[in-house]
Design a protein around this nucleic acid. Sequence first.
DNA 1: ATGTCGCGCTCTTTGTAGGGCATAATGGGC
DNA 2: GCCCATTATGCCCTACAAAGAGCGCGACAT
Lengths: 118, 118
Amino acid sequence: MPYKERDITKQYFTIGEVAEQFGVATSLIRFWETEFDELAPRKSKKGNRLFTQADVDIFRTIYHLVKERGYTIAGAREMLKQKGGQLKDKIDVIQSLEKVRGFLVNLKKEIDAAQKGE
Amino acid sequence: MPYKERDITKQYFTIGEVAEQFGVATSLIRFWETEFDELAPRKSKKGNRLFTQADVDIFRTIYHLVKERGYTIAGAREMLKQKGGQLKDKIDVIQSLEKVRGFLVNLKKEIDAAQKGE
DNA sequence: ATGTCGCGCTCTTTGTAGGGCATAATGGGC
DNA sequence: GCCCATTATGCCCTACAAAGAGCGCGACAT
């Protein structure tokens, strides 16, 4: 098995590389690691962080929410837990609708009961 | 011209009423006023704030973004400026639903009152 | 009627906890 | 020598809350 292929599939980024890619300080990456459970790169035996592409993607999402969209850390955390932003928006609307529906169903019951009594 | 009609069209809310409606301190409303150009209620001769329903709606949007979604003030400000933004539409829908709900709650009250009278 | 005494609401200005990192200190591996 | 690690500490804003002061209104005595 050629080395090259293994290197390609097992491409890791150091914290310095990720930092440079986004133009941020390494301290920020470490800090976000403590704030977001989702951001948890493997660590080498020595303790160095090993970022996969998936890890970088997660970081990018957080970066987008916090630095570009203006979410607080807490807000971004919530967002991440709800499989993607679009879905969250829809869920909000759906939940509102479901509450209204529940109310209407209940109201109908009461109206029916009232008519019965007449 | 009857007084009633004038009162209905000129309905203003005080800062205290708005604060209570959302369960926030009046200081927060004043602070947001300094942060969001869009939130600019009229002021009485004395200097007291006069919130129209439109002002309250704007406040609700900000409240939704900052307190429920977890935006920073700056992030919420950006969001507000986006004309035709998807979010704006969604919030409109939610607000419509809330108004419908308010109407229904009121209707229920009247129905209950009517039943009591039977 | 009118003075005036709270009382509740408002106003503006000032103070401050903590959120969000950055920096410093110390040390290890290649 | 350079990049990495942890831990502690520093530090500047953000996002409010509290403080201090003023108005208007009902009550109650004058």
